[in-house]
Design a protein around this nucleic acid. Structure first.
Lengths: 195, 195
DNA sequence: CGTCTATTTGAATGTACTCAAAAGCGGTGG
DNA sequence: CCACCGCTTTTGAGTACATTCAAATAGACG
């Protein structure tokens, strides 16, 4: 199952790892299981870990002053998830992260993360590229959120991430797209009627 | 004037540089001036440079299928700006970047960027933290965009970035916030009337 | 000054939201 | 296995916020 992590790294850095390199990499992690609804990161509490999902699903969300949730990110197997702000600044977290399904994750704490990055330049490069890709995707998401109507955003999202649409409750997809569940329901109805 | 860059680095990595280190750093850059409306990055064209603004102002924007602009990012002196996607992937750019005022920038190309990062671990760390901070700010922006109404977004933005509000045309601020210039004008009127 | 661009204002429209309730679906326990 | 409960999705009616279209005003620049 850890092969998932290995291929994730190799794909990201576009380069094979030796067995020794991967063994070294993985020695900084521990494996942990979470039940459905388990909390991985919490607003107001320091986020100590970065998670790589081996199975299951999770999502991060923000709660505003009115107590409304807004989904920030989804993750399923082969995805990384954490509260970056809190993990790197070591300040209280901004977001909650919760298991949507029972999940298994490879987990690394900050101390090990730093040590891992220092131990081999390849590993630092890996995390840099991961961050770069996440940044690029976020920037594109902002561009789309601000320039397209909800229907288009949904269509593009469903097209780009069909695996999320299948597995994640619709009211969370709606939140991710910045609309209410009732609105997404109507949008889907309208799309369906056009066929 | 390059001192601006030095303090930018030192503040980011929370550490002083030696003169030798900074001289080495800056040797990978060249200085360039741009006139108002000059184009720094262009959609469809490979973005070859990262820019650090010494003076002036610039902004990046996305153009959707309907030809509508959406502002992605503003930059004034002491800010970094580029099309990250294109610069790192070396694929055609997604965004335009344009000078809002005549500007002076320290410029680095990809080859030098890579060499710089390899030359000293501190420099690689610097760019990593820069990216981290940008990512964190973007994530927060998404959370706000999706969870707050336009008036609140404007108030928070004006409060957090007053120097942008002062210098940047209102129709670009509106675009950045994901609304039309007419709407921002009305929002500002409403706010003003409440005093 | 005159021109071009940005901002403001007005009126009508549209998209998404709120409130409310019904229908659908899945899991649990009797 | 079925009945019930809780949660998700759908639907309806009315509303609010932001948009569009249009035009007037204000500002900046040569």
């Amino acid at each position: 199952m850890e092969n998932l992590l290995r291929s994730n790294i190799e794909k990201t850095i576009a380069q094979q790892l030796t067995d020794a390199e991967f063994d070294s990499f993985i020695s900084f992690f521990f494996k942990k299981s979470f039940e459905k609804r388990a909390v991985l990161t919490e607003e107001g509490k320091k986020c100590k870990y970065v998670y790589f999902l081996l199975s299951g699903a999770a999502y991060s969300y923000y709660i505003n002053d009115e107590g409304e949730k807004t989904v920030i990110q989804f993750a399923i197997e082969n995805y990384w998830i954490t509260d970056q702000y809190s993990f790197f600044s070591e300040k209280p977290g901004l977001y909650f992260t919760e298991a949507l399904e029972p999940l298994e994750a490879m987990v690394i704490n900050r101390e090990n993360y730093d040590a891992l990055c220092c131990s081999n330049h390849l590993f630092e490069k890996f995390f840099r590229i991961l961050l770069q890709n996440a940044f690029i995707a976020l920037q594109y998401r902002i561009a789309k959120t601000n320039s397209e109507e909800a229907e288009r955003r949904y269509l593009e999202y469903a097209d780009t991430y069909p695996h999320f649409i299948q597995r994640i409750p619709q009211y969370l997809i709606a939140s991710f797209l910045g609309i209410k569940p009732q609105s997404l329901s109507r949008i889907r109805k309208k799309i369906a009627e056009q066929h």
